[in-house]
Nucleic acid binder design. Structure first.
Lengths: 248, 248
DNA sequence: ATAAGTTATAAACATAGATTAATTTTTGCG
DNA sequence: CGCAAAAATTAATCTATGTTTATAACTTAT
């Protein structure tokens, strides 16, 4: 883990800002908010950002890279709660209880913008816009959690996998404006199983089937969805609704 | 649906206050916050509180009764997201997007304290404590959602049912201080199935088994758990952690 | 008190997905 | 480049849960 405190990139130039916490703030508010940022952190793939049970004293915005948020189970398995992508705001709790209910691990090399939490609190008191912006993000995460719960509880394995792949594909597509047909996709079939409550073996079976149907192309950490509408049908979700939810 | 605007009960005497939104506010703040309340609403069992897609213009604290929050699926089924009990705060969104992502229906006769949302916003700006209190509740709901997701995704039907029954039993126990061994439990086996992604028939099989093991007694809208620790083992959850999460 | 609608229970059968175990392919590293 | 570890793939078997169909026990309203 490497800390960077000099020559930080400017928030107003940041590629992920529009989809991040400060996305809706006016420029003058932005300058005030930016002062909150203390440093950037670079974390190699596989390393923890924080552990379940830790007290949060920093908040992070992901600048680049993918993160997995999960709970460890008594039987040695883990339940992945969600995958966090650039622009996502992690590890901040406004309430008095600062104990974190889950762990976070870097799936690829990750760069974070870090904010000391105590400064945050005082600024929020003066800047209600920031409180509203944070709450808006929390509400979005909760809505996403509701749709994931729905997908996991009431659909087949094929629909669940299709739902997860499509969600992540849509998010990555808006973040990364390149013209390449594939987007980066740094998770394994086992990660997908841990997120959906399926074995990696069954995830593999579903992958074969989705590939045969021409719904996905996926290898070596890359994903391409030739026809999003078709995959949405298999995922049993309305594509416009999913786009709204995933791309803000 | 009946509206009450006269002789409302006082917040400082309210039986559910300590577990509700204003629970952590000081008395002087409380008086300010209480002015937000416009009226009480009584809703008969089976009637909707609001529908998915509605724009929220009021917020509610449940004063008495149980509510089911759910999404309707294309195949005619519904996914219950959670059951809301007295003290729960519903239907408020701080962010700009006021569209509700789920519906709510009364499971028993429900009395609500209603707050017009526009007044709320201005008060929050002046009273950061209220913003923190609301966020603390949202964070609690999110953590509960994480544990439900975990239970649904990675445990057996027996563990899921045990988890849900124990959660609700613990919540109802702290709300209702009576000495009766049973607590009210106004939901059907089908509701439980809709919450956990199981058929009501399989929920029934699990009920038989839990009863045979002496882990629950449940009939005519009442529930008794003779040994919470034993049920927690079946639910694959740590009882102290669940008690913290469910009883605040 | 009776009828009508819900909710719970029961049993037989079908299947999606888990489990186990082995093999192949890809990735990362010295 | 070549090795070791991780990830993906395949196949055989097993089991938890869904499906279907019926009936019984409650609730609620007339």
């Amino acid at each position: 883990m490497k800390s960077i405190t000099q020559n930080l990139p400017k928030c107003q130039d940041c590629a992920v800002r529009k989809s991040a916490l400060f996305g809706e703030l006016e420029t003058d508010h932005l300058n005030k908010a930016r002062e909150l940022r203390s440093h950037q952190i670079v974390i190699p793939a596989g390393e923890h950002l924080y552990h379940e049970g830790d007290e949060s004293d920093k908040a992070f915005t992901i600048y680049s890279g993918w993160v997995s948020l999960f709970k460890n189970l008594e039987d040695g398995n883990r339940q992945i709660l969600r995958f966090a992508l650039p622009g996502d705001f992690l590890c901040y709790k406004m309430g008095k209880n600062k104990t974190l209910d889950h762990s976070a691990i870097a799936l690829s090399e990750v760069t974070l913008c870090a904010f000391p939490i105590d400064r945050f609190h005082t600024v929020i008191s003066e800047l209600p816009e920031l409180a509203f912006a944070i709450s808006a993000m929390t509400e979005l995460v909760t809505e996403r959690c509701h749709t994931v719960l729905t997908s996991i509880a009431s659909h087949t394995a094929e629909a669940k996998v299709a739902y997860l792949l499509l969600s992540l594909y849509l998010r990555e597509r808006v973040l990364n404006k390149t013209e390449e047909k594939c987007v980066q996709f740094p998770i394994t079939q086992e990660d997908i199983g841990d997120a959906l409550g399926l074995t990696s073996i069954h995830v593999n079976r579903v992958f074969q089937s989705l590939r045969k149907q021409g719904l996905i192309e996926c290898k070596s950490k890359c994903l391409w969805v030739p026809d999003k509408a078709k995959l949405a049908v298999v995922a049993k979700v309305s594509l416009p609704e999913l786009e709204r939810l995933m791309c803000k």
